[in-house]
């Protein structure tokens, strides 16, 4: 992952895990609707938000991400019926653990974005980018460059 320095004009790097069935389609829709959103997101397509191992999130931070977004189908709408219910439990705990370990919880977010919610995806991207930009580069859990 590109290691962005703290020079002027620093922009955050945000890793976004998007589920294939909803959020990735939502991101696609934001694109084809020509909605502007920050270029700080690096989207990784996963089959389901339940595929996102908590280790992926920690590892993203360690390898230089300034923020992590996990996006999946709304509860009840999972392509695999129940995957996102497990995601929800997992990241409720994860968010609190990150906070407890001293990582600013604003760096991590879970969003439910359906395939028809292009504007919501763009909005989520703007929100997390603005928040992480305000927090500055990730110094909490990151390999020394």
């Amino acid at each position: 992952m590109s290691q962005v320095g703290t020079a002027a004009g620093w922009e955050p790097t945000i890793v976004a895990f998007c589920c294939n069935w909803c959020s990735y389609a939502g991101a696609d829709l934001a694109g084809i609707s020509r909605l502007a959103y920050p270029a700080s997101l690096r989207i990784i397509r996963v089959p389901c938000s339940g595929r996102v191992n908590p280790h992926f999130v920690l590892r993203a931070f360690q390898r230089g991400a300034d923020g992590v977004l996990v996006a999946g189908c709304h509860p009840g709408d999972c392509h695999y019926t129940t995957g996102n219910y497990f995601t929800r439990r997992r990241y409720l705990l994860m968010q609190r653990l990150l906070e407890y370990a001293g990582v600013n919880p604003g760096r991590f977010e879970v969003k439910w974005i359906s395939g028809s919610e292009g504007p919501k995806f763009a909005q989520a991207a703007r929100e997390i980018t603005a928040r992480v930009r305000a927090l500055g580069p990730n110094r909490e859990m990151r390999d020394e460059a």
Binding site: P54, H55, L58, R59, F61, Q62, L97, L98, A101, M141, R142, D143, E144
Partner: peptide
């Protein structure tokens, strides 16, 4: 950072 990831995981 590796150690942090190890312990949190």
């Amino acid at each position: 950072a590796q150690t942090q990831v190890f312990h949190l995981t």
